[in-house]
């Protein structure tokens, strides 16, 4: 069952996806590049998107679905605003990357591969991100955090929450200013 807001988001994307598809010829070989393009643009591949791709390539929706669900790369739900990626490559594993992952999971109350209900955070595990000398490593949005420790998890998430509250306060302040302005007029 899909959430109503997501369904309407999907519908909104319809025209755009049809537009994207025009850039690709109808060969089956384009299937994976098309799905990648859609995901790059919309951050996930919706059910509707898969059906549109099937129509474009003139294959069954089932086949698109079968291919998309085979590969790790494709997501079928919108990810969180902040993506937390924990390296569980070999070097990170031997120095306790799983403990870091667990701490994020516990702190956010979700499991790896999931998104928080407010769609703020999602957690993913990744293989070696190429800085094993800094293991264990977590990548939060674009920032790489090397030599991660469980005690740093709280700080990272708190940082985002403070930032969010600050933005909200500013917005509120703006709103009330506007309101005041309106009232004064």
């Amino acid at each position: 069952m899909s959430h109503p807001s997501i369904v309407s988001e999907e519908e909104e994307s319809r025209e755009e996806i049809i537009g994207l598809l025009q850039g690709f010829s109808k060969g089956r070989e384009n299937l994976i590049p098309i799905l990648q393009t859609i995901q790059k643009r919309h951050s996930y591949v919706s059910g509707l998107a898969m059906k549109l791709v099937a129509e474009h390539l003139e294959i069954s929706s089932s086949e698109v679905y079968g291919v998309a669900t085979f590969y790790n790369q494709f997501r079928f739900h919108p990810p969180g605003r902040h993506q937390i990626r924990i390296c569980l490559g070999t070097a990170c594993h031997v120095v306790g990357g799983d403990i870091i992952l667990e701490n994020f999971e516990r702190k956010l109350g979700i499991r790896e591969g999931q998104t928080t209900p407010d769609r703020e955070f999602s957690i993913e595990r990744v293989a070696c991100v190429g800085c094993c000398a800094l293991a264990p490593v977590a990548i939060v949005d674009e920032a790489t955090h090397g030599h991660m420790a469980p005690s740093r998890v709280e700080g990272i998430i708190l940082g985002f929450q403070i930032e969010k509250e600050r933005l909200e306060r500013e917005k509120q302040a703006e709103n009330s200013e506007e309101k005041e302005l309106g009232e004064n007029l």
Partner: peptide
């Protein structure tokens, strides 16, 4: 119909 999408999140 509703899509049968593998559940990947706490959000539906």
């Amino acid at each position: 119909p509703e899509a049968t999408i593998p559940c990947g999140g706490a959000t539906p």
